[in-house]
């Protein structure tokens, strides 16, 4: 149930901060910023250990989109779930816009919904087509009889 907290000296659950801090044996081992791997966040430029140049260019056997704000394909990319059908066309239109345009993102969200419907349709076709045909045939027979 909602409860109003008292003012000033109010403490959150779990007691007083000072005692908590003292009870904590790992307190402040990284107090010195020199012990923090991300300080400063941006370092002087230097290749990372293990890095290799030049980076060979990956070849795609399936269509892979790059957004229009980017000049070239990066050397490495994913090739999962290549674009297909109507959702694929929508995605193509989305990537024709650079990624700072809201339209790029809105079209992608639309394509995602269409993709789901396309998959549902494709999945239901094996039984949907025969049952629709049977329904149609049944309807025709009924009409013929009652005529």
């Amino acid at each position: 149930m909602p409860q109003k907290t008292t003012q000033r000296s109010s403490r959150a659950k779990n007691g007083r901060a000072k005692t908590r801090a003292k009870a904590n044996p790992t307190l402040a081992v990284d107090l010195d910023p020199a012990n923090r791997p991300g300080v400063p966040m941006e370092t002087a430029p230097k290749p990372l250990a293990g890095a290799r140049v030049p980076i060979a260019h990956q070849h795609a056997e399936v269509p892979v989109f790059k957004h229009a704000g980017r000049k070239e394909m990066p050397p490495v990319f994913g090739t999962a779930q290549p674009p297909k059908g109507l959702s694929g066309l929508l995605r193509k239109a989305a990537y024709a816009k650079p990624d700072h345009k809201p339209g790029h993102w809105m079209l992608l969200l639309l394509a995602d919904r269409v993709d789901v419907w396309e998959h549902r349709l494709r999945r239901s076709l094996p039984w949907a087509a025969p049952s629709a045909a049977a329904f149609l045939a049944g309807g025709l027979m009924w009409r013929a009889r009652s005529a």
Binding site: G50, I55, F65, K66, D99
Partner: peptide, 29 residues
């Protein structure tokens, strides 16, 4: 997914690598 050699990786910003994501400049692969 970070290349280790691009402008960003070289500066420690592997989360911003520019060599692994054709889809957007917002993030790395």
């Amino acid at each position: 997914i970070s290349c280790g050699t691009c402008f960003y990786c070289q500066r420690g910003l592997t989360g911003n690598c520019e060599n692994s994501n054709p889809g957007s400049d917002v993030a790395s692969g």
